[in-house]
Write a protein that binds this DNA or RNA. Sequence first.
DNA 1: GAGATAGTTGACTATTTAGTCGAGTGAGCT
DNA 2: AGCTCACTCGACTAAATAGTCAACTATCTC
Lengths: 204, 204
Amino acid sequence: MGRVSNAKERLMEAVLELIWTGSYGNTTIDQICEKAGVKKGSFYYFFDCKADLAATAFETNWRVKRAELDSIFSAAVPPLERLQKYCQFSYQFQSDMKSKYGRVLGCPLFSLGSEVCTQEDKLRRKVQEMLAEKCKYLASAIRDAHASGVIHAPDAEVKARMILAYYEGLLTQARIQNDVTVLRETARGIFSMLGVKGKQAVAA
Amino acid sequence: MGRVSNAKERLMEAVLELIWTGSYGNTTIDQICEKAGVKKGSFYYFFDCKADLAATAFETNWRVKRAELDSIFSAAVPPLERLQKYCQFSYQFQSDMKSKYGRVLGCPLFSLGSEVCTQEDKLRRKVQEMLAEKCKYLASAIRDAHASGVIHAPDAEVKARMILAYYEGLLTQARIQNDVTVLRETARGIFSMLGVKGKQAVAA
DNA sequence: GAGATAGTTGACTATTTAGTCGAGTGAGCT
DNA sequence: AGCTCACTCGACTAAATAGTCAACTATCTC
């Protein structure tokens, strides 16, 4: 079996943090290696290039995120409450990041996607896949809400894409402004797009 | 007065195009100079660094955009119609860019802002200012619509920020997916956020 | 047409960066 | 014990990149 190590994992963690707190283009392989405490020779032992590492890192990280989403969007929870919970979770998460890094960091997927989509097609595809998956959680909650009669939304997929755009747009605004309060409106906006009355929203 | 030239303008055009079709971080000063047909010495005659050029270029470009917005959001046009027109204009514009560059490019302001906000504070501020201005056009249309009774929106600023987030989110999604059809929903989403009934929307 | 001014040029340096390679090293297997 | 394989290391090259500078040139004003 030979020697074992967690250098690969350290590299993936490092690149995620660097991209998230900075940007893809501004992150160099040397920086990644330094942050991970790994020499460049080892970097190229595990990965072909920066894009390869980033793709693997985002993919791996997505598994963790997916588990979180599975819990938040559990079918055991009433559908509108899932959305509410998701907004709360997101707000809390961004607040924590602001405490940790001094900055609101938004959605790494969206920022990365927007930055590299014209240059790194493999990364672009990965990001697109993950965003599509995110959308499915929303669509499923919307479908359930429609089925239970609390909203009228026969076009769940369309609504889900609308809501995702809004949600990601808000996160990006929060990142640019470095201000979490932008995210206060998240749930309100989502419910108004779904045509939920104020009382229902509070009750959810 | 000495020699005159448009090298400064050529540099600004070049950097806008390169950032837009690619990214800020991936754009080098050499590339900018080559595209503009300007030598590096001249670059540094006009600008201190890439960030300086980018800030100036976006600022200058914003004046053009502002004139377009002034026309689209003319007070002579019924408020909801302004929003509709804006969505149409945006769709057309992105389609044209796709024809020209083979890619949907989204909103350069938003992409740039998201990319550099943690690294280039001067640029970040500029972007934030321009986004805030954009928001004002929306807010004013919403206020007018509220005043004329076609919608109920006493909180025009809040609604405007929501709509901007949605709009920019959609543009970014279109960029990532390289697909203009994403933008088909733009007006529908905006009107549903404003609580406009279908008939009103069509009539607008 | 003489200056002054505004802009141009190319050659240069120093640094950063991506990527390579061959020799080494340590953990587990037999 | 010793072999093997997974991994590490550091020193290297080549290229890209930012930034500088002094000499040059075109145009405008008087």
